[in-house]
Nucleic acid binder design. Sequence first.
DNA 1: CTGAAAGCGCTTACAG
DNA 2: CTGAAAGCGCTTACAG
Lengths: 342, 342
Amino acid sequence: MKKEQVTMRDIAGRLGISTVTVSKALNDKEGVSEELKARIKETAKEMGYRLNLAARAMKDGLSYNIGVIIPEQFTNVNHAFYLRVYQHIASRLEAYGYSSILHILTIEDEEALNLPRIYYEKKADGIIILGQIKPAYIEAVQQMTIPKLFLDFYQEGAQVDSIVTDNFYGSYELVSYLIREGHRQLAFVGNIHATSSIQDRFLGYYKSLLEHRIPLDPDWIIKDRDEQGILIDLELPTRMPTAFVCNCDQVARALIEKLKKEGIQVPADCSVVGYDNDIFATVSEPQLTTVEVDMEMLAGAAVKTMMKKISRGEASTGRTVVQGRIIYRDSVKSLTQAQSTD
Amino acid sequence: MKKEQVTMRDIAGRLGISTVTVSKALNDKEGVSEELKARIKETAKEMGYRLNLAARAMKDGLSYNIGVIIPEQFTNVNHAFYLRVYQHIASRLEAYGYSSILHILTIEDEEALNLPRIYYEKKADGIIILGQIKPAYIEAVQQMTIPKLFLDFYQEGAQVDSIVTDNFYGSYELVSYLIREGHRQLAFVGNIHATSSIQDRFLGYYKSLLEHRIPLDPDWIIKDRDEQGILIDLELPTRMPTAFVCNCDQVARALIEKLKKEGIQVPADCSVVGYDNDIFATVSEPQLTTVEVDMEMLAGAAVKTMMKKISRGEASTGRTVVQGRIIYRDSVKSLTQAQSTD
DNA sequence: CTGAAAGCGCTTACAG
DNA sequence: CTGAAAGCGCTTACAG
């Protein structure tokens, strides 16, 4: 059912002028008298004209769309984060006259190395991949002959630029805060082989320990998930630390529940910090001290980089790092105060 | 930066044939010998050919995109639900050769009645609105000259078809279950003027009361949010029911926390049920008995209806209702058993 | 300031 | 079975 749509020709016909002039007027280009331009715009509005971007797109060899790909696997963990980042990306793109197509990469497609159809149909001028994908899929992605960008993760050796949150430094700061509060027995909770994020958060923790000459105790690296990312039951260490540094809020909350069942109160008997500042941070009892990613900056950096690549065919920007900040809540007890009031 | 892209002409040139034949072959149309077709497909693959859908789109006067609009306001409550429904919509659309553009309608744009740019640029052949929007915006939406569909809500009087979950019947079934379990003192938690969903869930509750000749007690309709949808502190009724029927899991969980603080155990002293089966249902302690929406059916119905509208210009389908199902968990105590063991 | 011509990459209807 | 021609709706480069 092809609808009779108003085109520039219709406007031109009505006004007895050419489509060229209509095009110029509607795009605010030089070469139309102000008076005619006004009349054209008015007529366009009156007739309910809407630009057919597909026509312009074809002329330019551009789609004016950016594909945002979120792997389904990660979508299940932290919907809020991905949806919000997407929203910020979309709104930034609007300023460039771009729309965004959200494609959720199913586990099956990731396994089978199926590239999204928007690529095969030239529906996107660039692709932003939001959330870690498997190495094999990364290779497939590199076959795509359009600009691409990794967001919120990176892969060593991959020839794809990425924008990441500063997991390393964020975690480092959070642990340094704990140490300033008098904690010196700090466990890390997370599978340090599961994702680059967890790994970096662990290394930030480790850096802070090193700086304060606190030895790293392997018994205090507690696995929270298997290599597939499926969360497992946490095992409390035999010797307890004064604080647990969890790689994410969800696990921090699970840990607190577990501690409660063992009769250990948080933060009275033991402090716990998370990471992400997602729903689990506020749903947890007590609410979590954690690190928040600046989603707006993350999205802003991604869009800016992508637009450069598209318009100027700009070369590699490498790894861009976006800072986070600590959100102080109720899951940490200050041991320095505690001692002074003893 | 216009990339040199492979076109049908390039393939035709290489093979010494016409683009018409290439087009026919690639689209599996009649009129090309099997042998030539195979050679064309092979060459296309070899040359890394990707269809330029924009060209076909222009010919057809179609964009092969459907816009999915989610109001930001609702996005903040239940990200998981919207993202998952979107995913199902997107994957259903793929089967029709369609992509989906997710547009999050900001509160400001909704207030200012700004229609999404994808409409003004003819980037979408149809629009699915997922989540309740304000009446004024509904009127704006009706100005759009492309097929539109409301998903997960409806508005009396609006000339727009909608697909909704059966809030009425789902709630009715859930309450009937509670009554079967011996409960006869049932409170409803939710602002029955806030959304059509809450209202329908309330009415399902009421229907079940009516059927069982249980009088409706106004003191047992407990407000959970203001008219803007902002959750407020719950006030427990002076006379306690044996079960609370909450309009959503989030509020059910908040209620349970509140009850705990008052020393009332769930479900031992009091039962609580939710609705939605979202993250709050499993994060709650105990986990909630609730109603789950069949998101796949919801999305499937939406896409089917939309495709009909686009291809056949089909008329109104009115209100389509999609069933949910009860998920039984640990927040309900059977009073019949309790009595029999007394 | 205004417009005729050509072209973006496909597909459709028709002719051979 | 194969292809020349026309057209989708816009924009660009050029001419007047």
